[in-house]
Amino acid sequence: MADTKDLVWRAKGGVRRSTRAWRVRTSAVLVAAVVLAVLVVPPLVNLDEQAVDLGMKLHPPSLSHPFGTDDVGRDLLLRCVYGLRVSLLVGVVAAVVATVIGTAVGALAAASGGWVDRIVMRLVDVFSSVPHLLLGIFIVAMFRPGVWPVVVSVALTHWLSTARIVRAEVLSLRSRPYVDAAISGGASRLRVAVRHLLPGVLPQAGLAAVLMVPHAIWHESALSFLGLGLPTHQASLGTLVQSARGSLLAGDWWPTLFPGVFIIVPTLAIAGLAGAWRERINPRRRSELML
């Protein structure tokens, strides 16, 4: 009886392991495809994604237009690729900026300690208590529509969790005896920070940055969908979904479906890869997840 239980348990574990490997591989392939599409396609095809052809408006998917055309006859496949390019740019830049801010603030708070730490972390709490989409809307509303206000808005609302993670990590590293040994060995503050603390924090910070990319893309889409992000003529995944709203009510499903898929699939693929990375650098968490 005990034997069969054991066998069932093991079989389950095996299945889970192979699904995980499959998930990681799929994510990697998808992310590679996205990066390739975004970097290679626009310079190669050299087509104008804003070319209007009113005679071709709202054509369903066909061989010449695999994703169909939108309400002014622009090719949706091309619009989606260009939109993905813009959204990915916004997502990556915003995530990197947010991570740099978060790492700097978290490290500063932990390294200073005392009242600096207390004030900075209470400020982080205050910022976190405001829903960050609301705060993001408030920030973009102060500027003219464009790519950079969206980047600033997403970056300024997303560094908080990184600051917390980095602070906790630095606090735990800072009290290790090897820091004492370094001080006793004559190391300056800067040397301790750069040589011993930062390398310990970087994997966590890098992971936080990658995990943030999908989130930043969703935020860009949300802001653009609300009409506050990018100007509507500029293709981004958010503006594409937004401008498709009208035709969806008329029964034309393709201008909404394809940009929607373009939002969901790449972001989930990036999140899948980041998840695998997290399990790698934090094996204990993996064993907890296995249970």
Partner: peptide, 8 residues
């Protein structure tokens, strides 16, 4: 010694 040595 484990805690006194930078693991990297």
């Amino acid at each position: 010694p484990r805690l006194s040595a930078d693991p990297r």
